[in-house]
């Protein structure tokens, strides 16, 4: 479904990605793990079109993405939950959700889908008229996920959705990731919480200083000695 092929990304002199290749098949949850600065966010940003690869191709359902501007990428069915939630702080919860549906042509159904997001996250409904900047971190994360769902994506790119959340909420977020996947959305999940990520994922890739160093079935990665040492703290 999504293929990243030999992609290089440079920020000026910094080489953030070096010859990265990965694949996500329809229906999967794929985990992308790695330390700070490994290039995880850069990988997602290059898929979404926010940064342009210096080399390589990105294919989604057979068409090339690497030259598409971000809004075209969204229209093709790829949405992103960005790192650090990035809700629109001065817009209300409701307006944030409406922004998620910005590309949709079936405007009449948007209201129903907002209600579906509220059913999933009742806390958001109670706060729908409130500026998103006044929500707690956990609520903002739910809003960011709900907002990404509003475009009815085929694949959702999630950048560290559990970052900075209390352990109970972390569990809840991973349950939500599973639920979203079970209702038919493919997921590429970037996480520092490698244990949890590998527990929900089908497959995984490990990124180290811009390069994919190990990849395989999530269960195998969780048993891999090098992965355990570096990312699972065993």
């Amino acid at each position: 479904m999504l293929v990243v092929e030999n992609v290089d990304v440079n920020y000026g002199a910094i080489r953030a990605l070096v010859d990265v290749s990965l694949e996500v098949h329809e229906g999967e949850i794929v985990a992308l793990i790695g330390a700070n600065g490994a290039g995880k966010s850069t990988t997602l940003r290059s898929i979404s079109g926010l940064v342009k690869p210096n080399k390589g191709r990105i294919l989604f359902e057979g068409s090339e993405l690497q030259k598409c501007p971000p809004h075209k990428v969204v229209e093709m069915g790829i949405s992103q939950v960005p790192e650090g939630r990035r809700v629109f702080p001065l817009m209300t919860v409701l307006e944030n959700l409406e922004m998620g549906a910005f590309t949709r042509k079936d405007r009449a159904n948007i209201k129903d889908d907002i209600d579906k997001v509220f059913a999933k996250f009742p806390r958001l409904e109670e706060r729908k008229k409130q500026p998103a900047g006044t929500l707690s971190g956990g609520e903002q994360q739910m809003l960011a996920i709900g907002r990404a769902l509003m475009s009815k994506p085929k694949i959702m790119l999630m950048d560290e959705p559990s970052m900075g959340l209390a352990p109970m909420l972390v569990q809840e977020i991973f349950n939500i990731v599973k639920e979203i996947n079970q209702s038919g959305t493919t997921i590429l999940l970037v996480e520092q919480n490698a244990r949890m990520a590998l527990a929900v994922a089908n497959r995984g890739y490990v990124l180290e200083t811009g390069q994919v160093v190990i990849s395989g079935a999530a269960a195998d990665l969780a048993k891999n000695e090098a992965v355990q040492k570096a990312y699972l703290g065993v």
Binding site: L50, P69, P70, P82, R86, F88, M91, E95, M99
Partner: peptide, 23 residues
């Protein structure tokens, strides 16, 4: 709709693009 996209863009340029706004 355009007005909301303008506000979103002024609050967070990249994230507005991620919503499908042609900035």
């Amino acid at each position: 709709r355009i007005g909301k996209a303008m506000r979103a863009t002024s609050q967070d340029y990249d994230t507005a693009a991620l919503m499908g706004v042609n900035v």
